[in-house]
Design a protein around this nucleic acid. Structure first.
Lengths: 187, 187
DNA sequence: TACATATTGGAGTGTACGCTCCATTTCTGC
DNA sequence: GCAGAAATGGAGCGTACACTCCAATATGTA
């Protein structure tokens, strides 16, 4: 839709505003007026660039889901500790995306379309954690590795929720407790 | 507000409708019209019994938060396995309350008032899990017991989210993996 | 039975929302 | 520099929402 440079810039301003509102006030805090005020743009400009309000929201939401896996193409050379670190950094970092991701998971409880997307990215992540477990303990049966990966991610998600609600919560310390003794010792 | 029998019954019908809508369609699925249609009640009757729509919603929400702890008065004689079982049963049971509880946690990410409530009930639950760990392994330092309790609850919360999004997910089996070998063997 | 008060449904109100329309301005390739 | 297309702001539209108002009716009490 956008063909000229100014249009593309405006598009970015709108997405930035949507990102900010989404993380700070949640899905119901994102109104068209809020977006256009924040982006300093008229409604007409918005609809020149997006088909609907949800169009912009979904774009940000897609970002959020993908961002949990910082290296989707990675063939999987990361260690367990690296993966845990990356997850913790994502949750405790200043990016609004983490908040959006967890809110989204909550929304997935009632919206099947969102649930499907969230689950798909979840599965991918479980795979990567399972691979890392295998590398950590090569004698582990694949099934057991996957079981542990699932538990680890569940715990990280739960810790993430706590840390976003309670800024004084030390997620990194707690997350270290998820690593096997071998990985912890190696740090 | 309700003084006569019929009024109290209507109140219950309204709360049941709110509960159902909340769990099935999420917070944004709860409109006044939806509630009054579902409860087969006019708007006037609703406002005769509740101060606002949110009044009814919060009542249900309070239920949901409390329901995670089935025995709040329990001095803590439950075993770890019992507590895990109770949590799993709560999540996988047919009650809409579990869905509401997790949606609520998601909402807590942007609403400080809700975050405070959720965190408070979370802390209570961590205490109970920590006590159970102490009973399971009496030589455990209290700090370590609390650390493990926190991780366990985080994992249960994460598994709960997955299981609510993916009905084919076997939460019970995964949750068993959280128990120490001693508790598992004793089952 | 008679009275006071609680309960009822639903038409009506004000407001906030997503979105359209369009006259005006800005941009870019030639 | 010009022409044609893109970008812009904001007034205005239709709709859905939470909530009010009130006349009619049901309920409990003495």
């Amino acid at each position: 839709m956008a063909r000229y440079r100014v249009g593309l810039e405006t598009r970015e301003r709108i997405l930035a505003a949507t990102r900010r509102l989404l993380s700070e006030f949640g899905i119901e805090g994102v109104t068209l007026k809020a977006i256009t005020d924040q982006a300093r743009v008229g409604a007409g400009s918005f609809y020149n660039l997006f088909d609907s309000k949800d169009d912009a929201v979904f774009e940000v939401v897609r970002e959020a889901i993908d961002a949990v896996d910082p290296d989707p193409a990675g063939v999987g050379s990361d260690s367990l500790a690296d993966l845990v670190d990356a997850f913790v950094a994502f949750m405790t970092g200043s990016s609004p995306i983490a908040r959006i991701y967890l809110q989204l998971a909550g929304r997935g409880l009632t919206d099947p379309a969102i649930a499907a997307r969230v689950l798909r990215s979840h599965r991918r992540r479980v795979e990567r954690f399972a691979d890392a477990w295998q590398r950590e303990e090569p004698q582990l049966p694949p099934e057991e590795a996957e079981r542990r990966a699932e538990l680890m991610l569940a715990a990280l998600t739960g810790l993430g929720m706590t840390t976003l609600m309670d800024p004084s919560f030390d997620m990194r310390r707690h997350a270290q407790g998820l690593l096997p003794a071998s990985a912890t010792a190696a740090r």
